[in-house]
Design a protein around this nucleic acid. Structure first.
Length: 445
DNA sequence: TTTTGAGTTGTTCGA
DNA sequence: GTCGAACAACTCAAA
């Protein structure tokens, strides 16, 4: 479409906080000469978020605003009311977005679209946070996939577009001060000792390049090693859209060792988004509905067990290390996420998933809920009965020297070697201040 | 429609 | 220490 002289548009940022490889921005630039960049702090979305998530979002918004030389309007409220109002003020003919594929996002965008249509303004979605938009990859019979591996093959066959360049320079950004007053980007108080990654598109790009050049070669193995810097650490950036997976896939030369393993991890993110797109109710309920009647433990003992779990005082070193890493960094190593989730599933999967969503900077509804369901055995995978994680074995296998445990559990720092995974067996007894395990794992199994 | 092969990530035991 | 086998039965994908 050719540019129409003098026309204005809104670009409404959500989980796509970047300017590079941003099709919605290219679409905006194509159709309008003047553009207002907006972000809406929507309390309905932020309600489940704890301090770390909110702080990372606020900082990411500051980074985006800096990239736009201050020309980002941040308002609070209900998008259904806010956007038509702002679009009216700048005389916009259109509002541009990158599609949100989650249950709430789809519903909200439909409502915003309907409200804008009342005044003849079009809501245009271009692109999504995924290489392949959820819902596109189908079996031959048109049904969605329920198993990852066949999905992965079809997903690769489907393919994705090449990354788009940066088009912000062709847009005349409207000064937000002439439209409305931005809400201040103030951070909530941070818990003691919280350390978060640097936010923003440049940091995402630097993180990717460092990972690609240094860790990708050993990714197949080291991604399971919480004691090593083998993770990409990109999850938070991917979640908020500081980098698009398409950008990474294009930059992932096939002959690099580890490329296949990393591509699979990106595909898992897309698979879960696809499952959630087809089955939005799995955000709250089990994919496998037969588990809906599963009885969870309840009562004071279960409450105490959950509290100990959430605080990282279960007495299982690798579990406690993971849960404390979550509180300290808003992030947890993937292998440890599984071990930690597995250690709770008997008590309550939903509460565990909520705890993750509260604290994870990368907390993603699709990945989080469906991975929790996978661990609990009520998700997409018909898991063999024997796939149950033993926190001691897992610790010894993936943190063989105990370096990870000692990093996050100070009570155990004086314990040397792999004995740190079973402090109750020490001849001198467990170190002072460190609890005995809350349940017998063998019994639970 | 029927059949066949496969399914992210494990643990234990015995050689 | 390492290695392979055994560990339910079931569902899904594709031929």
């Amino acid at each position: 479409m050719t540019q129409r002289r003098g026309e204005s548009a809104l670009i409404w940022f959500r989980r796509d906080l970047r300017l590079g490889d941003q099709p919605a921005l290219a679409a905006t630039a194509e159709r309008a000469e003047r553009c207002l960049a907006v972000f809406v702090l929507d309390e309905r979305l932020l309600a489940p978020a704890g301090a770390a998530r909110r702080i990372f979002l606020i900082r990411s918004l500051r980074a985006l605003r800096a990239q736009l030389a201050g020309r980002l309007l941040v308002v609070a409220g209900d998008p259904v009311e806010v956007l038509p109002e702002l679009a009216g003020r700048v005389g916009a003919t259109g509002v541009h977005i990158s599609a949100d594929c989650g249950p709430y996002g789809r519903q909200r965008d439909d409502a915003v679209r309907a409200e804008l249509a009342k005044t003849g303004i079009e809501l245009t979605a271009t692109g999504s946070p995924y290489a392949v938009t959820p819902g596109r990859v189908r079996k031959r019979d048109g049904e969605p996939f329920r198993v990852f591996t066949p999905f992965y093959r079809a997903w690769q066959d489907h393919g994705w577009r090449a990354p788009a360049g940066t088009s912000s320079s062709t847009v005349d950004w409207i000064d937000p001060a002439t439209v409305a007053e931005s809400v201040p980007l103030t951070e909530p108080p941070a818990p003691d000792g919280l350390t978060l990654p640097e936010p923003g598109e440049a940091a995402a790009s630097a993180t990717w390049q460092a990972f690609r050049d240094e860790a990708l070669v050993d990714y197949s193995e080291d991604r399971d090693r919480p004691d090593r810097p083998g993770s990409s650490r990109l999850s938070g950036y991917l979640h908020w859209g500081a980098v698009h997976p398409r950008t990474l896939l294009a930059d992932l030369a096939d002959d690099l060792p580890g490329a296949e393993a990393f591509r699979r991890e990106l595909a898992w993110r897309e698979f879960h988004a696809d499952v959630l797109w087809h089955r939005p109710e799995t955000a709250r309920r089990n994919y496998d509905r037969r588990f809906d009647t599963f009885e969870h433990d309840s009562g004071p003992a279960a409450e105490a067990a959950f509290a100990a779990w959430a605080a990282g005082t279960t007495g299982y070193p690798i579990v406690d290390a993971g849960l404390r890493q979550l509180l300290a960094e808003g992030w947890m190593h993937n292998r440890v996420r599984m071990v930690v989730a597995s250690s709770l599933s008997r008590i309550c999967t939903c509460r565990g998933a909520r705890h993750f969503m509260r604290h994870l900077v990368d907390g993603d509804l699709a990945s989080n809920q469906l991975n929790w369901q996978w661990v609990a055995g009520c998700g997409t995978d018909a898991a063999p009965y024997f796939r149950i994680f033993n926190p001691i074995t897992q610790g010894q296998k993936f943190d063989p020297d105990g370096a990870y445990v000692r990093r996050y559990v100070p009570e155990l720092r004086a314990v040397t070697g792999k004995a740190v995974h079973q402090p109750w067996t020490l001849s001198a007894g467990p170190p002072p201040g460190y609890p005995l395990p809350i349940v017998e794992h063998a019994e639970e199994r």
